[in-house]
């Protein structure tokens, strides 16, 4: 359980745009342990999807620069050439459930074929074996044999999402990146998918990186939570401290803006809009919207403070900073 499987060091990612360089991810640092789920939460456009795709080395065409180090099982993989990365890492070690992937299934191929495809493409396994394996995985995610011979349009949304999860699992990866895996689904289906993900994690001792904008959904899986704001990881902590003792101003305000069913609390939204990643605010990037803002926040970029055991936050709150 304590074995570190993935480690990011100073991982940065920037894109070229017509208005300038967009710094999508800045100095991301974290570790992922075996069998652990790290949830990365943040508003849309905060860079969480870029981070996930960056780990998969799926860069857009307008990539400006990628820097830092990524260690998988202690081996640096960011500097690998594309060919060996594709052969040895992508999908076979790290796979991904893309946002909205259920709607991009190939409409003219049977689902079993689509699930088996990573095996045939990435591992060069023959069709028959691959199909057999695909059917096994499909039944594991709750899709019966009869449905595996169908086409995507014959399946409901929840079932398509199960197919997508099966595609991510078929190569027996160690890490699965889940990018908003339930955002387009109904609540009950969402809960069903979450249940499935929990079961699969136990079954295969998987590590998840769970990308979501929804703090409530994040709590369904997260062992640890990293909060991203404007391209930076501003707080990273075990789930308990995140929900009960948030340390960053942004996290506190975020938790305060989420309506909940059981607790009838006065909600408060975060004023303003997320900053542009082309010219983010100086010093602490959240200071223009922060209700706890102090003078220092506007002058000096806060370092990662250690707030507690395994709990780090880039925030001056509660620190003596003079």
């Amino acid at each position: 359980m304590n074995e570190v499987i993935l480690k990011l060091k100073n991982f940065s990612l920037s894109y070229k745009t017509r208005k300038g360089i967009l710094e999508a991810v800045k100095n991301a640092d974290f570790e992922l342990k075996k069998g652990e789920t790290l949830a990365i939460v943040g508003e849309s456009g905060c860079g969480k999807s870029s981070l996930a795709r960056g780990i998969m080395r799926l860069f857009p065409r307008n990539l400006e620069k990628v820097s830092g180090e990524i260690y998988l099982n202690g081996e640096e993989i960011l500097s690998l050439d594309e060919e060996s990365y594709r052969k040895n890492i992508r999908w076979s070690k790290i796979s991904m459930v893309f946002q909205g992937a259920m709607n991009s299934l190939n409409p003219v191929l049977k689902v079993v074929y689509q699930v088996a495809e990573p095996l045939m493409v990435h591992m060069k396994i023959d069709k028959e074996t691959a199909f057999k394996k695909a059917k096994e995985i499909l039944s594991l995610v709750g899709i019966s044999e009869s449905f595996s011979e169908r086409y995507p349009f014959e399946l409901s949304g929840g079932m398509k999402q199960r197919v997508v999860i099966a595609m991510a699992l078929i190569t027996n990866p160690q890490i699965v990146i889940l990018d908003e895996p339930t955002s387009a689904l109904d609540i009950i289906t969402q809960a069903n998918i979450m249940n499935l993900l929990k079961l699969l994690k136990k079954e295969f001792n998987l590590s998840y990186i769970f990308i979501t904008h929804d703090i409530a959904t994040a709590s369904e899986l997260a062992d640890r939570v990293a909060v991203m704001y404007a391209g930076e990881i501003v707080e990273i902590s075990p789930a308990e401290s995140f929900y009960y003792k948030p340390a960053h101003g942004y996290t506190m305000m975020l938790l305060n803006s989420v309506p909940t069913l059981k607790i009838d609390k006065k909600l408060r939204s975060i004023p303003g809009t997320p900053p542009s990643l082309i010219s983010p605010p100086k010093a602490c990037r959240f200071h223009p919207r922060c209700q706890f803002v102090m003078d220092i926040c506007k002058i000096k970029e806060p370092p990662m403070f250690k707030k507690d055991e395994e709990h780090f936050a880039k925030c001056y709150i509660g620190e003596s900073h003079e």
Binding site: N195, S219, A222
Partner: peptide
């Protein structure tokens, strides 16, 4: 009602009854 997650780190330790 039972399917709606409230932000609670205990959620991850149990399956939802749905």
């Amino acid at each position: 009602l039972s399917a709606i997650p409230d932000p609670d780190p205990e959620n991850r330790k149990k399956l939802r009854e749905v």
